[in-house]
Design a protein around this nucleic acid. Structure first.
Length: 757
DNA sequence: TGACCGCGTCTTTTT
DNA sequence: GACGCGGTCA
């Protein structure tokens, strides 16, 4: 009865193609949903509709890209049909829950803890160090991303070793020891009863393939599966979906190939195409009407994305009003850019009925936020900032979490390493090395060795032994405590008794005060977590429950209430799925957007998609901006406008008159500095709409032109003469004798030398 | 053992 | 500019 009424009501809110996509539930379907085409709405209504057909809420599996998206969708579904679906969240959070249920089958305990990226990196570093390898050759970051890629393709160390080609390649790349690092990494994670982010997916696949009865249990449980943002899933995730839906084929993937921006994390745009192959009777729906943006914004975005070769062709259109042209601001410096954006925000606010929260400034890299923040503070523009150092990455929070982790999982090596001597308790490097060595040779945990060092033939003096015992006893005490108390009480006890709070309160430097505030905030979050769980009907919310989720939290997940009416600052990646009335995209320059690290055609296409995502966040106004010079990596660098600007059809663009943005003293300095450096460039730029990026003279000299004897200018060291050259490609170094700063070795990749004659 | 300093390195995006 | 590392000194 109730369901019929609601069903009729909510389906009226959908257009024809949205309705078709919502109502088709006989088999597999793929919904290609253009930006702003009401994708979330379709997904929400589809789930709501399924619930009205009698499917139980716990039998729907809905996978989203962020926890936040999941929570919002859950709430909306509850509003529409009054039912709460249980299995909804990110791949990582849903499958970590499932893994806990069956952890023992694959050699873990249900209390396994989760390594975040910095824990993983620290472990890799440690392995490299203990293997006596050179960190310059075996760069932990590179090694880790290679490991991550392998795991995302389900290539275990054993499988890696089995393929002779791999060793051959590593040998050629001069990292022959890679396999051993990978092997050790996996072994040590397992010994530590720990999974990293990729393991959550890898081990789910392992669980399903090794235990068909477990797989079958979930195949039967989930009678319908929906996945959002399919273009950003990786192979490992794709296989999980394939396995779970293999029997009933009731699966619906929603995505937009044009918005695929996570290939660096292993996401594969082709999963969308593979999806159709894996589910042969898959029905394809396209949502092409954009409800979000003005015609100009949609047309401009279309004209940009057309320049990509690799894409599913579709026609996104808008029936909204034409709207304003995309505006293009150019500035002399990043500093000016920030000032221009501030004054532009003020201007739009004056002329229209907007709030601060209707504005967002998007950028390619987090480091760009700094100048913007300064300008906003100066201009009294309230702002909130996402990204950068995550709350959970702050030292004081990680320290507390490490105590918590060790409390429930004594094998968690990175947690132990972090706190065994923090706060300082006289267990120094020498002792620690002895403990770790013994643990590895006896194949036991470091914690166990620390408890009873003599059993493992570790020779330490009685003083140190006493200190170790104090430490392990303390942790054991927390363990007993958490088993009988709730998460809040446990965390509170740990904060108070571990000595962390005492250490921070010893003196009241501003850093310590802020640390104290963060700790209070953290405790508050634990409280809210318990509160929320209690409201959801769970009792005995323990530290394990909290830890199981906290590792997968991100900053976006805990929006503050006070953050209401503020301008949003974030990276384009973080803006995925969001929309704002007015969007600024800052730093549209070569070397920055597209990033200097993206060189191959496919990488450049991803950068272009990234800009497409950025532009399509805008509802009413979209303003692009670039600066001629930018303070980066400790020095002023010059660059040309982004090639992507000329990818946008000029009929949708309005370029502000050149060089109108002068703000304050700093600008004048920058301007002078700029002129003195590049007196040529000023005349190159014609004040026309179309910007010629291809013909403008590059500001820094092509490195190949530099020879021994070349007279050069360096932005910081001034004039000099090249006296020696060595290396090739990115490694190419020049020895330069500067007139006033002596002789320096410079990596040409970074030095940006200019030949003067 | 810990605090501090100076040097060199490296700079993308994040579940 | 920020960070990590290694060396030095108390």
């Amino acid at each position: 009865m109730v369901s019929e009424i609601t069903e009729n009501n909510f389906l009226n809110n959908l257009n024809e193609s949205q309705q078709e996509a919502t109502l088709y539930n006989e088999g597999a379907s793929l919904i290609i949903a253009g930006a702003g085409s009401g994708k979330t709405r379709v997904l929400t209504y589809k789930i709501a509709y399924l619930l009205t057909t009698g499917i139980q809420p716990y039998r729907i599996l809905a996978l989203t890209f962020t926890n936040k998206a999941a929570n919002e969708m859950k709430e909306r579904i509850a509003q529409i049909v009054g039912k709460k679906i249980t299995w909804m969240g990110t791949f990582h959070s849903v499958f970590s829950k499932i893994l806990r249920q069956h952890a023992e089958l694959i050699g873990f305990t249900p209390q396994f803890t989760i390594y975040d990226s910095s824990d993983s990196k620290s472990l890799v570093k440690n392995i490299i160090k203990t293997m006596n390898l050179d960190e310059k050759i075996y760069k932990p970051g590179n090694i880790l991303s290679k490991i991550s890629m392998l795991k995302n393709h389900l290539i275990s160390p054993t499988a890696y070793e089995a393929d002779y080609q791999n060793q051959q390649n590593d040998y050629l790349k001069k990292i022959p020891e890679f396999y051993n690092i990978y092997k050790q990494y996996v072994e040590r994670c397992k010994h530590s009863n720990v999974m990293d982010f990729d393991d959550l997916l890898f081990n789910t696949n392992l669980l399903f393939s090794s235990f068909p009865d477990v797989l079958q249990q979930y195949q039967e449980l989930f009678s319908f599966i929906l996945i959002d943002e399919y273009q950003d899933t990786n192979y490992s995730q794709h296989l999980i979906v394939k396995a779970l839906a293999a029997k009933h084929q009731k699966v619906c993937a929603v995505g937009d190939d044009a918005q695929s921006i996570y290939s660096f994390r292993g996401a594969n745009i082709d999963n969308i195409l593979t999806f159709q192959r894996d589910f042969p009777n898959c029905k394809l729906f396209k949502l092409e009407q954009n409800y979000r943006s003005t015609k100009n914004i949609v047309d401009a975005a279309n004209s940009l994305i057309e320049k990509n070769n690799h894409q599913i062709r579709k026609t996104i259109f808008s029936e909204n009003k034409r709207g304003n042209l995309i505006e293009l601001i150019n500035s002399y410096s990043d500093f000016d850019e920030a000032a221009s954006i501030s004054s532009k925000i003020r201007q739009i606010l004056r002329l229209n009925d907007y709030n601060y929260s209707d504005f967002a400034v998007l950028y390619r890299t987090n480091s760009q936020s700094r100048v913007l923040e300064d300008a906003f503070r100066k201009n009294n523009i309230p702002y909130k900032i996402y990204g950068g150092i995550s709350f959970y990455q702050r030292k004081e929070i990680k320290d507390i979490l490490a105590y918590c982790r060790l409390t429930i999982n004594k094998n968690d090596e990175e947690a132990l390493r972090r706190i065994i001597n923090y706060p300082a308790r006289g267990i120094g490097d020498t002792t620690q090395i002895k403990l770790f060595n013994a643990a590895h040779s006896y194949g036991t945990s470091v914690f166990e060795v620390a408890e009873t060092p003599t059993i493992f033939n570790v020779k330490i003096n009685s003083g140190t032994q006493k200190k170790l015992l104090d430490f392990t006893k303390k942790i054991e005490e927390y363990t007993l405590f958490y088993q009988a108390n709730d998460a809040y009480a446990s965390v509170e006890k740990i904060i108070k008794e571990s000595g962390i709070i005492t250490d921070i309160l010893t003196d009241d430097t501003p850093e310590n005060i802020s640390k104290k505030e963060n700790i209070d905030e953290f405790l508050n979050m634990v409280y809210e977590f318990c509160d929320r769980k209690a409201n959801e009907g769970e009792s005995n919310i323990s530290l394990t429950d909290f830890l199981a989720e906290v590792a997968l939290f991100t900053d976006q997940d805990n929006e503050n209430e006070e953050e209401q009416n503020k301008v949003t600052l974030m990276t384009v990646h973080a803006a995925k799925g969001l929309e704002f009335k007015n969007v600024f995209i800052a730093g549209l320059e070569e070397q920055l957007f597209p990033s200097a690290l993206c060189q191959t055609p496919s990488e450049l296409e991803e950068e272009r998609r990234l800009l497409y995502v950025a532009i399509t966040r805008a509802e009413d106004n979209c303003i692009l901006s670039y600066a001629k010079s930018r303070f980066r990596n400790g020095q002023t660098q010059f660059s040309n406008p982004s090639r992507f600007i000329k990818d946008i059809d000029s009929q949708f663009l309005h370029q502000q008159q050149e060089y109108t943005t002068f703000y304050g003293r700093e600008t004048t300095n920058t301007f002078k500095e700029y002129r003195s450096h590049t007196s040529k460039i000023i005349s190159i730029h014609s004040p026309q709409k179309n910007i010629e990026t291809t013909n403008s003279t590059p500001i820094s000299t092509n490195n190949d032109e530099i020879q021994v004897g070349s007279k050069v200018i360096h932005a910081l060291f001034g004039k000099g003469i090249v006296v020696d050259l060595e290396g090739h490609g990115d490694e190419r170094k020049a020895k330069v004798e500067f007139q006033t700063r002596g002789t320096k070795q410079l990596l040409l990749k970074y030095a940006k030398l200019t030949i003067t004659e």
